[in-house]
Design a protein around this nucleic acid. Structure first.
Lengths: 340, 340
DNA sequence: GGGGAACGAGAGAGCGCTCTCACGATTGAG
DNA sequence: CTCAATCGTGAGAGCGCTCTCTCGTTCCCC
């Protein structure tokens, strides 16, 4: 690391313009300027004009700390992410951020990024208490995380990115998991596959449960299934077992792209071609789906829209604390690639 | 979209504890509590203990808006990203965020995410003026963007992710571009390639210039080169020209992974195998490098470290406004995959 | 033309914190 | 033993804004 330096002095900041000065310039009181700034309608048109002129002449910009102090609003919300490398690297993350920002940016809300490291939950909570944050969006919170409950206890605005694993009176947005699974089922059937099976997600997670149930509802409870834990190795292991127990399987719904990616090499080594011999449908439309060979047909959630809705739900809670808890469920779609 | 709702009333927030109350509880003045909270040393040990006890008994947390109002610090910095879909989807983004957060989080600084949409520069600038932001980190700012200059004019703390295209007394972090290019050159040579060429980046960008210069410095000025503009199609076009003019080329340094990804299919269609007939080295180690077939050998910048350094430089500027402008240059490394 | 409603503007009290300044107590030197 | 220097604490003045409350006008209706 080499570093070059050169001296360039910085000048002191230009003095700030305050409400007071605008008021003096416009020949009115602070209160009136405040009214104009905040768009209160009950201001005489002439006066409003004068004030607006004074504002642009002086280059006035309200100090938000001062406003914050009295309104008790920080005009900032946090996006809390699990701090696994996986998440920040996944395009999913970018989509979430974009979706959320479509709502927060126009509303003048700051989007603060946080991860749930050790004790970071405390950080978020304290930021909320200290009036530095108005609410939080929790993405992929681990089932063991006590944060949702604590946020609820503090009556802070919060929205989850999925149904919580324990029933909690908390607002969340989710994809219709069972519908996604049956989308996969129908697609496999339509492609002429008749000996179906599924590699399910962990049955202690809502997504794992729902995706399995959806698939079984669509194709029958007697469909063979093996449980994985949403990780790549577990997908490989599950595929081996499935193949051993049901060598004639010709269509598999894998409850996550990552598991599917683990399953593909197993199939290949077992001499099965994808999609010719076995068709595979994944779930999530994550980065992993594209990294697969062949690229994965998968169930996709409308991530941007869901993220935007989370932001909207959060804003609503912030503005109307009495807003009832809500769950908004989105319909998934099927992205057909080359694994089916 | 289906939505279920149920009524769960939220209770009013528990009343906040203020300095005043802690002071009363500890039997001291507000000023003393403030001293303890802010770690001023000139406080009698007994009194300090009493105050600390009162703080934990009352569960006191300082209101940051109030503090902000007097200290004129927002304790928040913005990460400004170009708002191209590409960026948010690229793992590069995640690495930058992670790197920056390793510095901002422990410092208690909020990391605010922003994109440079139309007029968003104004937003950033006004947040700075309104005392809502202490400084900004600009990632991949387009050469035409007036924002860096305007930030400099306002004497706001700012750090760029690369050398600005026009000379500006501004702090930045960059990778040693020419060193990266010569890394690529040496690698190709070492792999026994002797008929080298390069697809350069746009020659009006610092990175484009430096990468070409580094390569030419390493292999000679007479090396064939074609200019692209860092995009995928331009890489394809450049490769076609290169192949037409120098059909015997056996090693190409492509100044961006994205262009390399455009070049690969052109080579394939021309009957050239990669790496057997032609070896390819890219630059950036972006997502595109992995999406290539075969995966790309590429020049990698230590993104996390660079991002962390940007954050450090920014913090220094915020805390010491007279800090001189600096440029910190990092050494790149070569990631060898299957295209060489 | 008089009474009351409706309306628009100003005065002023905070919001919770920091920080300067003054002051009493303690200490040390002469 | 006195006086000055030192140290720790408290009082109080803001920081810049919002918002309630009051008060003077205007307007309308009978």
């Amino acid at each position: 690391m080499v570093s070059y330096k050169e001296v360039v002095p910085r000048h002191p900041m230009t003095r700030r313009v305050t409400l007071e000065e605008v008021a003096r310039a416009a020949g009115v009181s602070r209160a009136t300027v405040s009214r104009v700034v905040n768009g209160v309608t009950s201001v005489d048109e002439n006066i409003r004009q004068a004030v607006e002129e004074a504002i642009s002449n002086t280059g006035y910009l309200p100090n938000l700390a001062a406003r914050s102090l009295v309104t008790r609003r920080a005009d900032a919300v946090a996006l809390v992410l699990p701090d696994e490398d996986r998440v920040l690297g996944d395009p999913f993350f970018g989509r979430v951020v974009r979706g959320v920002m479509t709502v927060t940016a126009p509303a003048g809300l700051h989007l603060v990024l946080t991860t749930t490291g050790v004790g970071t939950g405390d950080q978020v909570l304290s930021d909320l208490k200290r009036g530095r944050l108005d609410g939080v969006i929790l993405i992929h919170t681990s089932p063991a995380d006590p944060l949702p409950g604590r946020l609820l206890d503090g009556h802070f605005p919060v929205v989850l990115s999925a149904r919580p694993s324990v029933p909690l009176p908390i607002t969340y947005v989710d994809v219709h998991q069972t519908a996604g699974a049956s989308l996969a089922a129908r697609h496999l059937r339509y492609a002429g596959r008749s000996r179906l099976a599924t590699i399910a997600g962990p049955q202690d997670s809502p997504a794992g449960q729902d995706r399995l149930r959806g698939f079984r509802d669509a194709v029958g409870d007697d469909v063979p299934w093996v449980e994985g834990d949403f990780t790549l190795p577990s997908g490989a292991a599950a595929m081996s077992r499935l193949l051993a127990e049901h060598p004639d399987v010709d269509g598999v719904f894998v409850a996550s792209d990552l598991m599917a990616r683990g399953a593909l090499p197993v199939l290949r080594r077992a001499g099965r071609r994808v999609p010719e011999d076995v068709a595979i449908v994944g779930f999530d439309d994550s980065r992993a789906a594209l990294d697969c060979d062949p690229p994965l047909t998968t169930v996709r959630q409308p991530t941007e829209e869901m993220a935007a809705e989370m932001a909207r739900l959060l804003v609503r809670q912030i503005e109307h604390p009495e807003t009832p808890v809500a769950a908004v469920i989105f319909q998934p779609t099927l992205v057909v690639r080359h694994s089916t």
